[in-house]
Design a protein around this nucleic acid. Structure first.
Length: 596
RNA sequence: GGUCCGGUAGCUCAGUUGGAUAGAGCAUCAGCCUUCUAAGCUGAGGGUCAUUGGUUCGAAUCCAAUCCGGAUCACCA
């Protein structure tokens, strides 16, 4: 059905271009012809904006618009009316056109998706530390990254979904050290605590114990900075990091054990969220690489060495600053690792683009990364793209792990599920389902509420997470769209086998047309959302479609329609909406239950 | 201080890339279930699109300046 993605606009542009050339003997390229969608109060399907054409052709606007409307009516068969209002020409297409569109749409299970193949793209998202559970911030990252992956795939890209595990460093050693001191060989099995939460508890424990030690030292008159440096735990954790880097078997063993606990915990959470990765990259694999690349750059004179031995790059030509790449002791810093990881990904998959789903705090970091890769003339440099999203804040302000204001992903999911269950039971919903089916349903409704609440906001915007609003099921929410879908499914079940013949051309009601116009926009919406890497575009569209369908549903009977032709049309129309809602929700990673 | 991002209804957000009288949801108020799932639908009130100037047939949208909020400018990751 790629043929229908914007085909009317395309055809219209070509027509208008040709008609203008004939009438005024002047070439007007199709790209100069502006087609818009009329506002709701105008009962037309498309609007041709003539202001700029009048200017371009040096013709008086009223005459030009009138002439163009006449020419179009005479030469473009699908058109039944062309009304001129000021500089707008409002175009209405025939009922036959829309019925034909519906028939094509409905019988095409992949309507909206593009069949042409586009280059391979790599999308990184999630990026957790392996010392604590996933939290609300990761959820926004994951939802955006996953939906963008789905969108890119839907429009024809081959997509590689990757995760990056920050599995080494001093913060990882903190939970290890605390476990070593206080753990008493506790395991997820022995404690009954999910692995990532168990490790997280020791991370918190470390910070608490360190704080105690620091307070004792500060009481003796040391500054906070000095107290931190001298605290025994701080020294021990540094020693542990060195032991880890030296490959000490005992430390490495503990590290592997605890990380595996965390990974098992993450895997459970990923499953609940309905996401997966094609490949996971571990920082512990790449943190030593990159050094070679820097030394090559140094040889080529792209970088320079300071007297202390550290290596730097001067990015002032790009409006950036001088950036350290290797410390005086030869060890690499974060950005050096990132170059190495990018190279590894390039070697693994040779993607046209590498999309990094990372919070906007790191906007500057990615500018620098890209600039350095350009300097090194790495083949993937231009393909580096930072998919930047704004922080999630709570009504009380930013989440602070030290202040215990972090919302854990697992807890949140449980709450959403419980709320969905409470609502369903209070309202006597889905009572004909089995216990297991109900549980599954509640989970999918809770997930829908959460994902949609986050995805409906444009990624670049900061957002405040209001718990009460996020679990709402009314209005502009995920459950509302699910509900519309489930209601259509119910309708179609009652209708039995759908009439297979194409709909007879019946005069269309206004609300039927509005639904058709929206269905028609689905392919273009997907292209737009994928192009912008913006799931919110799709989320907004889906809400709009569901809302418009509900208006139709309220206004016109389907099963009890007056004529067979109307009944068939409305059933087909409902089926078309059902299909697009299911398709769109799936791209957002939201399940579409058939009853609720 | 430099750079980047944001500022639209009481609150949370859209706004078809410069087009028609700026739209939704929540909240408030008033209606609609003997008919296909009321997690729905209809209506009302609610706006100096941060401010000021500019660009033009036309600006929430583009440009400039200013104000407010946030992020960033680490030998942290």
């Amino acid at each position: 059905m790629a043929a229908f993605s914007g085909s009317v606009e395309h055809e219209l542009r070509t027509q208008v271009s040709e008609l203008l050339r004939r009438r005024y003997d002047q070439p007007v390229g199709p790209e100069n012809i502006l087609i818009k969608l009329p506002p709701p109060e105008v009962a037309a399907d498309f609007t041709l904006v003539a202001f700029s054409l009048a200017q371009l052709l040096q013709q008086p606007l009223p005459q030009l618009a009138a002439a163009l409307a006449e020419d179009l009516k005479a030469n473009w068969p699908p058109l039944v009316s062309a009304e001129v209002v000021k500089g707008f020409i409002n175009l209405t297409l025939s009922d036959a056109f829309w019925c034909d569109f519906l028939e094509q749409q409905r019988t095409n299970p992949t309507f909206g998706r593009s069949t042409d193949r586009k280059p391979r793209v790599l999308v990184e998202f999630c990026g957790p530390n392996t010392n604590k559970p996933l939290h609300l911030g990761h959820l926004r990252n994951i939802f955006i990254g996953y939906a963008v992956s789905e969108l890119l795939q839907a429009v024809g890209h081959e997509v590689v979904r990757v995760n990056i595990l920050n599995d080494r460093g001093v913060h990882i050693c903190k939970s290890m050290l605390a476990y070593q001191k206080y753990g008493q060989h506790e395991t997820p099995e022995s404690s009954g605590i999910k692995g990532d939460f168990l490790v997280g508890e020791y991370y918190v424990r470390f910070e608490q114990e360190l704080k105690k030690q620091m307070e004792a030292l500060q009481a003796q008159g040391l500054s906070e900075e000095e107290a931190r440096r001298q605290a025994p735990l701080q020294r021990e954790v540094q020693q542990m990091l060195q032991a880890w880097e030296a490959g000490d078997p005992e430390v490495r063993g503990l590290w592997a054990t605890m990380n595996n606990w965390v990974y098992q915990g993450f895997a459970q959470t990923y499953r609940k969220l309905g996401i997966r990765f094609d490949k996971e990259y571990f920082e512990s694999d790449t943190y030593l690489k990159g050094k070679e690349l820097v030394l090559q750059g140094l040889q080529k004179g792209i970088f320079y060495r300071k007297p202390d031995g550290s290596v730097w790059v001067d990015l002032s030509a790009e409006g950036l600053e001088h950036k350290l790449l290797l410390r005086a002791d030869g060890t690499s810093v974060y950005i050096t690792q990132d170059i190495a990881t990018a190279l590894e990904r390039w070697n693994d998959f040779a993607p046209e683009r590498m999309i990094y789903t990372v919070a906007s705090e790191q906007d500057h970091h990615f500018k620098v990364l890209k600039a350095i890769c350009r300097r090194l003339e790495l083949p993937f440099a231009e393909g580096i793209h930072h998919l930047s999203y704004g922080l999630v804040e709570l009504p009380t302000g930013r989440m602070k792990s030290r202040e215990g204001t972090v919302v854990d992903a697992d807890d949140l999911l449980e709450e959403m599920t419980a709320t969905a269950a409470r609502y369903s039971k209070e309202h006597g919903k889905a009572t004909d389902l089995s216990e297991a089916e109900q549980q599954e349903l509640f989970r999918s409704i809770g997930l829908a509420a959460l994902k949609f609440f986050i995805l409906k906001v444009h990624a670049r915007k900061r957002m405040v997470f209001h718990p009460e609003e996020s679990i709402d099921v009314h209005g502009f929410t995920g459950p509302f769209i699910q509900y519309t879908h489930a209601r259509i499914c119910s309708l179609l079940r009652k209708a039995g086998i759908l009439p297979s013949q194409p709909v007879a051309v019946a005069p269309l009601h206004r609300s039927e047309r509005e639904v058709l116009r929206l269905l028609y926009r689905y392919p273009a919406t997907l292209l737009d959302a994928a192009d912008q890497l913006e799931p919110a575009v799709l989320a907004n569209y889906l809400y709009h479609l569901a809302k418009t369908y509900n208006q139709f549903y309220q206004e016109l009977p389907v099963l009890q329609a007056a004529t067979d032709a109307e009944r068939t049309l409305r059933l087909h129309l409902s089926d078309g909406v059902r299909q697009v809602l299911a398709s769109g929700l799936s791209l957002l990673g939201i399940p579409a239950p058939q009853r609720m």
